[in-house]
Nucleic acid binder design. Structure first.
Lengths: 238, 238
DNA sequence: AAGTGGTCTAGACCACGCG
DNA sequence: GCGTGGTCTAGACCACTTG
């Protein structure tokens, strides 16, 4: 990465994660960091702003930048993160089973979700996610075929995001998400090891590309006892 | 507010919300906005960055800033927002019942949540939230007494956040949140109209002040069918 | 008084999209 | 080639904290 401020952000974030800077430590002052990295103050401030946004530090006028305690942040479902990336970050044994992979003419519901008409083909992908030998999550993905002409079992087994970003070079920009809890359906019971639970946590995501086109709708259905969502939020006035 | 960039942000956000700028419109270019508001480019860019962050716009190099469709964002539980603020934004008929308000020596669990020892007094506040004549949410708040010496039923009935920020002038900076789904307890059944549901959605929040001191732990317990969480997330590389 | 972060400015150069 | 946003710089002044 040739960006100075991103490089500095990553460097500082790494130093916080590895404990070089510890919770409640003060980061070096902005003028000190300017000299250390040999950049202008604005560049340093850009880096620090991202650290603030991500919950790494808290700034205080007249005092400095305090390192926050991030040890409660181990399950970052917030943000736009794929299942494979998640697994990597957690180091747990996850596995994925591709149940359905087909290119279809969408039904009414899917048309509605993706805001298209039924002549536009979409990929329909159902995958189950296994943790400790139990099927915990059912992911139902619908992806506009015009953006992704080919998909294989192997790609779905691996990471669709990786393929889309690294191979197709599509740029995912943002997502809208909604979390609710609903009665489990026959489909849920078919694909998941629901045990005694008769409800599932449903995470609906609409994913958009950089040019603001909606290209994917995902419904992620979780067994309630294994669902956790962790969030860091700053108070915004006005 | 004397901040230029916040003023401009609010002005533009207002124009998007009221439909002066519509979805898929291009915002005026940065140089145009510089002239319109008679400020430097950096100030404009600060405003646009917040709009981007909050999901109002999407920028594209060489093209401009596109207005996004925000109509799916009607329930902003994300961010640090209090119940009263929420009610205002939704225009629905909510009501709050204060069930418990006392200053206690905390038990082991609360000590653990707030990272204190049992000699520190805390306010214990239980409130139920009613929507359409049903008790849907049970809020269990624990607030360090050293920050808030006095609390009344009237304040709790209204908005604790309002009192803390506007009257005590404490500055709430950020919060960590966790969402899970759990079996309902006897307490839940006592305070809520749970109908046939035997599970509740539990939102645990740790709220921090600007000086990074943890001052409040809240457990918000929701009847599952009425729970919605909406989030906007940008994809961050690296 | 000295040091910290917060805001604002003016100017430079680059990368990208489009005609 | 022109206009757009993206990055970076250097300098100014202010507000706040601490000694």
């Amino acid at each position: 990465m040739n960006n100075k401020y991103l490089t500095i952000y990553n460097d500082l974030a790494e130093k916080i994660k590895t404990g070089y800077y510890k919770a409640n430590d003060l980061l070096p002052s902005e003028s000190k960091l300017m000299k250390d990295y040999n950049v202008s103050r604005d560049t340093i401030r850009k880096s620090l702003n991202i650290l603030t946004q991500e919950g790494y530090i808290q700034k205080a006028q007249g005092k400095g930048s305090f390192v926050l305690d991030i040890n409660r942040f181990t399950f970052p479902v917030s943000g736009v993160v794929s299942f494979k990336e998640l697994g990597k970050q957690l180091g747990k044994t996850f596995s994925t089973d591709v149940k359905i992979l087909q290119c279809i003419s969408p039904d009414k519901n899917v048309c509605n979700y993706l805001n298209i008409n039924k002549n536009q083909k979409v990929w329909k992908i159902f995958r189950t996610r296994k943790i400790d030998e139990e099927n915990i999550i059912l992911d139902k993905d619908y992806i506009l075929q015009k953006f992704v002409s080919d998909l294989t079992f192997h790609i779905c087994q691996n990471s669709i995001y990786e393929y889309i970003e690294d191979t197709l070079h599509l740029k995912i920009a943002y997502a809208k998400k909604q979390i609710t809890v609903e009665k489990s359906t026959e489909e849920d019971k078919k694909y998941l090891d629901l045990k005694e639970y008769d409800m599932v946590v449903v995470v609906r995501s609409y994913t958009y590309l950089e040019d603001t086109s909606l290209f994917q709708y995902t419904e992620s259905r979780h067994r309630p006892d294994k669902f956790v969502f962790v969030d860091f939020a700053r108070r915004n006035k006005l």
